[in-house]
Design a protein around this nucleic acid. Structure first.
Lengths: 224, 224
DNA sequence: CATTTGTCAATACAATTGTATATACACCCG
DNA sequence: CGGGTGTATATACAATTGTATTGACAAATG
């Protein structure tokens, strides 16, 4: 939790040597995001570096976050929220279309293609940083799995295609898409396209497999 | 000063301010590995830190590697080789057993369970560090995919079960297993077991899906 | 008005970083 | 023996780090 700022509106823009208008946590987070272009991870950013990018004194950082880690967690939350929002939106837009399993894939892929920065942040810090850090990522991933699982079950029910362990299907798809997507942003646009197609095929394989296993399980209940 | 044989003088343990026996790159890499317990990534290690862990002077580091990044690449290569070796060994041991798709899963999982440190290194640096860095990881992952693809095709041929896009199947399985395995080492042993079972189911889904899609494709060639 | 409070900057400090330079051995070759 | 060559160390230095202290200024509050 950050210390609340954002008080009155300060229209004074004069760049006098003295004061600067207050800065919110949002600007700080944006500054941090602007830093992690390319290869860097959020936890590799230094407090002074972020402060520099945000044009504030190093110590002013503490007015908003206690740590860089705290900022990172906030950033992860924001990335997760943003990504989920984009996916929901894409899903609504594609709702009219039919296409069975294909829709889910396209939804994911479109969000992936749209703003890979969010996805990058999440997937980069999956296995990195402090504990609170990875817990935040895990939390966001779980949200994704939840929503995806709901949709998968809904579709399965509607089309009469039962799934084997839909929760696992959602988990597998989520992890796979995140992993694939993480390696997408430094690719050329056409290579990206290829990777997206590949990922779509993979996702379809998983879904087809779960259907097949569900059918088989119904025919002959496993010996254990 | 009397001339002393280097072998004979090697047992001199006196902590005189003088000399220390030479150190190989292997020891340095081991020291680096010992540092990245828990959350740290290889690229977050400092040269001095590694030197400290290896009991050498900071500058001696340069005798063996030009960078920390260079050490990291060497470490990635070693991890990949070690992991592939373990998998080959496990595969040989399981060759007699039958079990269709299950064998591949078990082989992967056994190697995962055996020494997750290697896997940790590889999966942690997938989307991190310098370019040469990630290229090294990518290279090792490709090796895995290659071997897995070969085995998958062999099995498919032997059992008369054709696969849809075996290369993609191998890629999906590899990425998925690495991702899942990366989040396994900080779990309790029983939670680990659960995760391994889950991963096995996921892998089976992929394989079943690829079989299903191959069969479907044969029946009715896609409309596009 | 005076006072408090919240947000910033400036300075400073100890720690740690990567690396440059110089030096002390141990060895190999002549 | 004497002189490279290679590997280690010690010292040093400039940069950069996180943070403590202090104070300036604006807005809110009395």
């Amino acid at each position: 939790m950050a210390i609340r700022s954002r008080k009155a509106s300060n229209t004074n823009d004069h760049e006098k040597p003295g004061r600067k208008p207050p800065i919110g946590e949002h600007e700080l987070m944006q500054a941090a995001v602007s830093l992690l272009d390319g290869n860097r991870s959020v936890s590799s950013l230094s407090l002074r570096e972020i402060a520099r990018a945000a044009n504030i004194a190093p110590n002013s950082f503490y007015r908003h976050f206690r740590d860089v880690d705290e900022l990172a967690v906030a950033l992860i939350d924001q990335a997760g929220r943003g990504l989920r929002g984009m996916i929901r939106e894409a899903r609504q837009r594609l709702e009219g279309k039919q296409g069975g399993v294909r829709t889910s894939v396209e939804v994911f892929m479109e969000a992936l293609d749209d703003d890979s920065r969010y996805l990058q942040i999440l997937s980069r810090e999956m296995s990195l940083g402090s504990d609170a850090f990875r817990e935040a990522v895990e939390r966001e991933l779980t949200y994704f799995e939840q929503e995806l699982c709901d949709e998968l079950m809904m579709r399965g029910e509607r089309f009469g295609l039962p799934m084997h362990e839909p929760a696992l299907v959602a988990k597998a798809i989520t992890r796979l898409v995140f992993t694939m997507g993480a390696s997408a942003d430094k690719l050329s646009p056409d290579a990206r396209k290829v990777l997206i197609d590949e990922t779509a095929i993979m996702v379809r394989m998983i879904i087809r497999g779960s259907h097949a296993m569900a059918g088989e399980q119904k025919q002959k209940p496993k010996k254990k």
